[in-house]
Amino acid sequence: MTAAIIILTSLALIFGLALGYASIRFRLEGNPVADQIEALLPQTQCAQCGYPGCRPYAEAIAADEVDINRCPPGGEAGIKQLADLLGKNPIPLDADAGIEKALPEVAIIHEDICIGCTKCIQACPVDAILGAAKKMHTIIAAECTGCELCIPPCPVDCIDMIPVSIDLTNWQSDKPVPITIISKQLTSADNAGEAVA
C-alpha cells in the first residue's frame, strides 16, 4: 500500500517535472494558432471585420472572441479554410461585415478631380497611394488590396473601385463539368453533331 503510494507519487512528480521542463524548453514564440489563422486571411487590411487589420482579427479568432465569418475579402472559400484549420463548421459570411465581391477590385483615382488633400494616403493601410499635399495622387495598382478604406475620407469622391480585368495573362481555366447524363445524345449518332453545337 505504502509502496504503491510512494511509487505513484514519485511517478507523478517525475512526469510533472518532465512536463514542466518541456513546456519551458520547447516553448513556441508568439501565438502559433494566430499565425496560422493569419496566413489564411487575405491580408487586405480592410478592417471590415471590425478589427484594425488582419493580424488583430486573427488574434481575436485564436482567442475565440469572434466568429470566423467576418472576412468578406476571404469569402466563403476563406471561411472554409478557417473552419478546416480550427475544426469548426463553415458558416455563411456575416452580412454585417460586408459582401464578397465576385471579382477582385482595385481602387482608381480620377486624377482630374483629385485635389491633393492626402487624406486617402493616410487611410491606405498598405501605402499603395502615391502623392503629396496639393499634388495629384495616384494608386499603385499592383499593391492595392481593394480594401476601399480610401473611399470614405476622400472629400471630392474621386476614388472608384474597378474590377481587375481578365485578359490572356491572368485568365483562369474553369473546372471541368463532368457529363453525367447524356441518354438522348447517346441514343442516336446523328444527334452527335447537334450535341456538339
Binding site: E38, L41, P42, Q43, T44, Q45, G53, C54, P125, V126, D127, A128, E143, T145, N170, W171, Q172, S173, D174, K175, P176
Partner: peptide, 24 residues
Amino acid sequence: RYGKSEQRVRTVERKQSDLAKLRF
C-alpha cells in the same frame, strides 16, 4: 489545366497577400 491555373492563382494571391502584409 484547371489545377495548374488554380496553383498559379494561389501563388499570385499568396505573393500579393505577403506583400500587403509586409507593407501593412
